[in-house]
Design a protein around this nucleic acid. Sequence first.
DNA 1: TCCTCACGGGTCATTTTATATCCCGCTATT
DNA 2: AATAGCGGGATATAAAATGACCCGTGAGGA
Lengths: 347, 347
Amino acid sequence: MIENNTDNSLLLFKLLVPEMLPVFQKRYTILRTIKYNQPIGRRLLAERLALGERGVRSEIDFLKDHNLLESNAAGVSLTEEGKKLLPQLSLLIHKVEGLAPLENYLAQKLDLTKVVIVPGDADQNCEILHELGQASGAFLRDVVQDQWVIAVTGGTTMAEVAHNIPQTVGKKDVLVVPGRGGLGEDVEIQSNTIAAEIAQRLGASYRLLHVPDGIQNETLEPLLSDHKVQEVINLSKKANLLVHGIGIPEVMALRRDSDWQSIQRYSRKEPVGEAFGTYFAADGSVALVTPTVGPKVEDIAKLDMVVAVAGGKSKADAIMSVLRASFVDVLIVDQGAAEVIKKQIEE
Amino acid sequence: MIENNTDNSLLLFKLLVPEMLPVFQKRYTILRTIKYNQPIGRRLLAERLALGERGVRSEIDFLKDHNLLESNAAGVSLTEEGKKLLPQLSLLIHKVEGLAPLENYLAQKLDLTKVVIVPGDADQNCEILHELGQASGAFLRDVVQDQWVIAVTGGTTMAEVAHNIPQTVGKKDVLVVPGRGGLGEDVEIQSNTIAAEIAQRLGASYRLLHVPDGIQNETLEPLLSDHKVQEVINLSKKANLLVHGIGIPEVMALRRDSDWQSIQRYSRKEPVGEAFGTYFAADGSVALVTPTVGPKVEDIAKLDMVVAVAGGKSKADAIMSVLRASFVDVLIVDQGAAEVIKKQIEE
DNA sequence: TCCTCACGGGTCATTTTATATCCCGCTATT
DNA sequence: AATAGCGGGATATAAAATGACCCGTGAGGA
């Protein structure tokens, strides 16, 4: 009833003064961008936000007049007041954008237990990945129980998740393990590195998996027979919780110096999405499995809780292909991806 | 907590997009003015709202685009949607303007049991009197109990109250009596007429008091000895509820063709407010009692519930003078008067 | 019945506001 | 000491809000 009243106020404002919405979003975006880049100059900010320099300047002046920003020779920064305001604004944006209904809609249509949508679009504002990380981190912190085993994968998104998990006092006997080897890429986004960081932030312990990706099966087998490797792999196959990112095959191939042509050639179908080293076709079927250690689709389907994290309009197709494989339980996305997915569902 | 959330949303909007507030108010005022004057033309509307013709036009176009208005050859009118929206907007304006806190503040500072504030200023928009009437009417309807006797006075404000009391099924045995004779002025705003209309709308019965105001005491006495007159006067002296307007002495003198000079001469102090034929000085003391029938200040002070209704910035002083006499329990005013009163209290 | 007045809609010059793009002196970092 | 990037100032330009008309038309009063 009273809650209804809140929504009602919003509806009335949106109905009677709709021109304020873009302004509200603009100012929120500016504050958020400053939060993640402070101190930052006016020009850089304008470039990053794809706005005119003078426009940004007017807004900065406005926000400064309201004591949300302060500026010195290094650039503008958030004041204490501004810092306090941002989380509240985030909630309000969530309401204004109607993200709660969208979350419910997607959860129902996609048969997921939970959908979390973060306002914004990672394609347009790269700091949305931070927000995505924070949301995922908060979710992890809330959901993890004592003595759980958490498996995580690599990737830039997962790296952000790791960086943004709030430092918490440790749950008891929680163990974080990498979901695959993944020594083929930048150490910053390897699953090992990410597992370690998540463990550290959760106050949990961790095991590592020192097996390179993409090597031939013959070379792999002796490694697999190692009992320490075996143990970690078995742990990840029976994890209570798996958190993974979702990749766009073409982009991943580029990053890993793999040959996109050959991936396509060896695929049974056109791969449009990737998760834990498996490429999925648009219909959710497996297009290609890269030779790597770690759990396969059939293992993952048995897990209690699989959390997928991804952001950006461009990842919508990849996300859909993975979701159609029906092993994901919780989806944490940004608004950009969520809205594209909604459109696809409606068609 | 959730309520808090509502206020919080409003606060955040007001903080981050303050420029929308005047627009919101403007559009609300336009809708409200149309409601009371439909169908009305663009120019007339502009004149009444003291806005430019073109500005009003843009807003009308906007509201028409949103299906809140429709226009024909006679002028613009509210659509069904617009009619439904207005009460909700009224509530929202009440929140936006922070009138609830203001009501509490005034109630506490002025030692009143209840204060009701209607958005707007009757001096600027005469239709605010209608709103004031509606608010008073709603209050009356809610508060009146079976077998109550209600005494009412005359005046333009009270006439509006009468016109706007929602037609309700009758309470049992409610009786409405005029608080004074008042045959000296326009029949439309005589207390007799008003008593009759209020009674009709409440489904109550009424008695009338056919005694002219302002006549000499010698002429008055034989009338007072009439037992029907006596009965009505006694009823009003023991009423459960008295509703009265508040007048500005100078204005009233003008309307009644009385001599303002002589009123001043016979007054003990400078009269700044009037209620039921009694003129009050700024400190709340009685400045002059016009020769009339009906309850005096000392009678009224004994009543359980005295409701004062008044609107317009210009009436603030008059209201204060009456309130200082300390017999009013409930004050129903408009925002214009309320804000001036608040300022006076703070000084 | 006609007549007239106010209606909505169209137009356009004017003013006000927003925007884009420089320049400058400063300061913190290299 | 050099320099890159900062905030602040200035100005030409584009855009939008405004004010002031006219016009054909339909409703309501005579």
